[in-house]
Amino acid sequence: ASVAVIAAGTQGNIFATSALRSMRFLQILRMVRMDRRGGTWKLLGSVVYAHSKELITAWYIGFLVLIFASFLVYLAEKDANSDFSSYADSLWWGTITLTTIGYGDKTPHTWLGRVLAAGFALLGISFFALPAGILGSGFALKVQEQHRQKHFEKRRMPAANLIQAAWRLYSTDMSRAYLTATWYYYDSILPSFRELALLFEHVQRARNGGLRPLEVRRAPVPDGAPSRYPPVATCHRPGSTSFCPGESSRMGIKDRIRMGSSQRRTGPSKQHLAPPTMPTSPSSEQVGEATSPTKVQKSWSFNDRTRFRASLRLKPRTSAEDAPSEEVAEEKSYQCELTVDDIMPAVKTVIRSIRILKFLVAKRKFKETLRPYDVKDVIEQYSAGHLDMLGRIKSLQTRVDQIVGRGPGDRKAREKGDKGPSDAEVVDEISMMGRVVKVEKQVQSIEHKLDLLLGFYSRCLRSGTSASLGAVQVPLFDPDITSDYHSPVDHEDISVSAQTLSISRSVSTNMD
């Protein structure tokens, strides 16, 4: 405001104040949320940038038409019409005319000016109207692209899951042992070998009828009888010197917790746990005396209480009078009846079946994303299906024409109403129809010849004498029936064969 007042002088105070007050009108834009329509302006900018070359070309040609039209109309009207006294007036008329506004304040009066105005109007309006069409088509394409992008975003994750499931299904095939990355992934998420051994031990116990592997080994086996189970490696608790092959000598807290839970599941009659010990102070733990958990001091820290809870689970003690015997301790020893080589084939089979199920689920979810969402998608899918159906029908028609023997030239002739090819031409065609016709002709010829021969033979049998045999009239074959199959017997006289037959029969009768 200060700059405006200084620039306008003393009389500019009122002007500056009114100008600043008129800017209050811009507050109405906040009512229509114009300040939060950044996406709309961004869309407009992207459309203009995408079609910038077309817009520049249309505007450039339109500007050239405007300059030439205004100049030529000015030359034609400057002497006869006072409205075109300057080139600026003519340029104003050209702008209003070519933009199809047409105020009518300035019009050419001479015939030359009117002809020039009409010609440049028809030429220039087309170029001035091009930017509107370019922007409209650009907006339509952009909206369609955003629509497809939205659908693509919805299909991206199911497609990625389907590709991942397909690759993992491919890589978990037993015949592709060189693909090891997927197996490394499952090695990292699978439970430890100790848990798998416990699982298979329970399965084997159920197969043995509820007997433990130790009891199965204690059962008497006759001499020479084959053992029911192959000899396997035996594993004891981590306190002993022997372990399962492939295990580490260090046992983690999870393994100890699972070991304690498995020992508690063996039965309360074979294992008696004394009350857990509780320390009397955060600094020292008295293991010899058993106290109640309700006497825990409230001033303990979080670490002390955590250690106390761990001691409740991981440090059970047995009383002296209830101490288990050596046999019970041997039964409680952890027996590992299986090795990694025995378990891994079954584990890989389970993983393979899981990968198949996940692949089928991913495939079903991806197919669900291909379903249409709204009416536009339904129409688009219907149009695509219609085009596909037309293509299939056209391909089927082409194959039928190839089989029947109607080529493209014959199809055009039928469409024009011309006469089709004759039967002889159809026979000569190298097509399925021509071959079928040729075979039918040959079969008819053979059938006719057989009928003639059978009739001749029956007449010979009825006559009974050589004289009557020679008097029999043998009809000749019709050459038209034989089609294109020409037998060497067709052109010979059958009477010669009949005479030869009669001579042979007379000779045979004389010999008798």
Results as ranks from 00 to 15, higher is better:
Tyr373His: 01
Glu330Lys: 05
Thr280Ser: 13
Glu331Val: 02
Val472Gly: 15
Met278Leu: 02
Val472Ala: 09
Cys235Trp: 08
Arg218Gly: 08
Leu199Trp: 09
Arg371Gln: 02
Ser445Thr: 04
Pro372Ala: 07
Lys295Arg: 14
Asp410Gly: 06
Thr280Asn: 02
Tyr170Ser: 11
Arg317Cys: 07
Gly267Ser: 04
Ser487Ile: 14
Arg371Gly: 01
His202Pro: 11
Leu196Val: 05
Gly391Arg: 15
Ser269Cys: 14
Thr500Met: 15
Thr500Lys: 01
Arg411Gly: 01
Leu314Val: 15
Arg265Gln: 01
Gln402Glu: 01
Asp304Val: 15
Pro408His: 03
Ser319Thr: 09
Ser248Thr: 09
Asp484Glu: 13
Leu396Val: 09
Asp512His: 15
Leu450Gln: 10
Gly464Ala: 13
Ser281Ala: 14
Ala329Gly: 11
Arg317His: 08
His272Asn: 10
Ser468Thr: 12
Lys298Arg: 10
Gly391Ala: 12
Phe243Leu: 09
Ser175Asn: 04
Leu312Pro: 14
Arg205Gly: 07
Arg258Ser: 00
Pro220Arg: 14
Leu169Val: 05
Ile354Asn: 01
Asp451Glu: 07
Thr306Ser: 13
Ala181Ser: 15
Pro231Leu: 01
Val347Met: 07
Pro222Thr: 08
Lys365Asn: 01
Val427Gly: 07
Phe477Ile: 11
Arg265Pro: 11
His486Arg: 03
Val472Met: 10
Arg371Leu: 02
Ser175Gly: 04
Val507Asp: 09
His386Asn: 14
Ser188Asn: 13
Gln271Pro: 08
Glu492Gln: 06
Ser504Ala: 15
Ile351Ser: 09
Gly210Asp: 14
Gln263Arg: 09
Leu390Gln: 12
Leu199Ser: 14
Ser325Pro: 15
Phe193Cys: 14
Val350Leu: 01
Thr482Ser: 03
Ile430Ser: 10
Gln499Pro: 13
Pro222Ala: 14
Val221Ala: 02
Leu469Met: 11
Glu429Lys: 07
Ser269Tyr: 05
Gln499Arg: 15
Pro475Arg: 07
Gly246Arg: 13
Gly434Glu: 04
Arg406Gln: 07
Pro293Ala: 14
Arg406Leu: 10
Pro488Thr: 15
Pro222Leu: 05
Trp300Leu: 14
Pro230Ala: 01
Met433Val: 03
Ala165Thr: 09
Ile189Met: 10
Glu289Ala: 01
Gln204Lys: 08
Lys298Thr: 15
Ser468Cys: 13
Phe243Ser: 11
Glu331Gln: 12
Ile430Met: 04
Ser504Cys: 09
Leu461Gln: 04
Ala181Pro: 15
Ala346Ser: 07
Pro268Ala: 15
Val436Leu: 03
Thr318Ile: 11
Arg218Gln: 06
Gln442Leu: 09
Pro220Leu: 11
Ser299Thr: 12
Phe308Ser: 15
Gly260Ala: 14
Gly409Trp: 12
Phe359Val: 03
Arg176Leu: 02
Glu330Asp: 01
Ser292Asn: 04
Glu285Gln: 02
Glu289Val: 08
Leu387Gln: 15
Met344Ile: 04
Ser504Phe: 09
Asp428Tyr: 09
Ser284Ile: 13
Gly239Val: 14
Ser466Thr: 10
Arg250Trp: 06
Ser325Thr: 15
Ser463Ala: 08
Ala197Asp: 00
Ile503Val: 02
Ser311Ala: 11
Ala206Ser: 00
Glu326Asp: 14
Lys365Arg: 08
Ala165Val: 10
Val203Gly: 08
Ile446Asn: 00
Arg250Leu: 10
Phe456Val: 08
His486Asp: 15
Leu179Met: 03
Met432Thr: 09
Pro226Ala: 05
Val496Leu: 10
Arg258Leu: 08
Ala290Thr: 14
Thr339Lys: 04
Asp451Ala: 04
Phe200Tyr: 10
Arg355Thr: 08
Glu247Gln: 15
Ser495Ala: 10
Leu476Val: 15
Leu214Gln: 03
Gln286Glu: 10
Tyr186Asp: 11
Leu338Pro: 09
